[in-house]
């Protein structure tokens, strides 16, 4: 058992970091914001953490906290212009943000060492730390979904016209979701930097943006479990089928298309609603005439 664990430890760490990123994507989608910004906030968090540790000799915990704060601040600033946009325009605006961050990491060589990236980051975020953080974030997001805030987010996502007719302040709730998403992505970035020895701009490019979105679509958009399931499936499948390594992107694409066509609500959401329907059938009471 322990041997199995050590063999796959790095894969497990990778899944946990990506689960955080998926949850950052999940939060915005749940509130009906079509943001692709998570990859950009993760890059900010990762570079901030890595630079503070390697160049400024900050204690790692403080550096990760600073990375999280930077992700939060950036999302809070970006939320202002974003509130005026809707749907696909939000996607384009956040995509532009990711591009800006990316070209900064590639070209601001004095700070980021350009394409070489930053090496020699101490490996301080172990499996236990990552697992702890993921558990706390899952608990937080599950809790959020159970009360008024979660209900308001659901209404906004499903039907904005109903939301305003119920007195829900759409910009306020969406801004909150977006900032929370930035905080989670910033933290995911900081933890990624401190669990992988080195980071390069390529780690946070278009690939990560697509992965964050794919994990949530694969798992399901309405519950936190969707993001978790998506991270586990999307990150572990290519590792388990190493023989197809050359076709990694093809396999991923086929997997996504299959899920979108046959399980449009995602793996976890479909399972959850199936279980709920079954439970209801068991306790069904004949309706009064």
């Amino acid at each position: 058992m322990m041997n199995f664990f050590y063999t796959y430890q790095s894969l497990f760490d990778h899944i946990l970091v990506n689960a955080l990123l998926a949850m950052s994507q999940y939060v915005v989608l749940r509130a009906g914001v079509f943001s692709l910004g998570s990859a950009g906030f993760a890059a900010l968090g990762a570079y901030c953490t890595a630079i503070l540790i390697t160049a400024q000799a900050w204690p790692p915990v403080a550096a990760i906290a600073a990375g999280t704060v930077l992700g939060t601040t950036a999302s809070a600033l970006l939320a202002l212009p974003l509130a005026r946009l809707r749907g696909v325009f939000q996607a384009v605006a956040t995509l532009a943000f990711v591009q800006i961050v990316l070209s900064a990491t590639q070209n601001w060589e004095s700070l980021t060492h350009g394409a070489l990236g930053i090496n020699g980051i101490p490996h301080v975020a172990g499996t236990a730390t990552l697992l702890g953080v993921v558990v706390v974030v899952v608990l937080l997001l599950v809790t959020m979904g159970r009360f008024g805030l979660g209900r308001a987010m659901d209404v906004i996502r499903e039907d904005e016209m109903v939301a305003v007719s119920l007195g829900i302040s759409v910009p306020y709730i969406q801004r909150f979701a977006f900032i929370l998403s930035g905080a989670l992505a910033g933290m995911a970035g900081g933890l990624h930097a401190t669990s992988s020895y080195a980071i390069t701009p390529n780690d946070y490019g278009f690939g990560l943006l697509v992965a964050a979105l794919a994990m949530v679509v694969l798992g399901g958009r309405t519950s936190v479990w969707g993001a978790l399931v998506g991270a586990v499936v999307l990150i572990s499948l290519p590792e388990l089928f190493r023989v197809f390594a050359d076709y990694r992107n093809v396999v991923q694409g086929i997997l996504l298309m299959t899920v979108i066509i046959y399980l449009p609500r995602g793996v976890a959401d479909t399972l959850i609603s199936m279980l709920r329907d079954r439970r209801l059938r068991h306790e069904v009471v004949p309706e009064k005439p």
Partner: peptide, 13 residues
């Protein structure tokens, strides 16, 4: 919704 008085942080936590 219009009768809910509890703030965002109380909801989140």
């Amino acid at each position: 919704h219009r009768h809910e008085r509890v703030g965002l942080w109380a909801n989140l936590l």
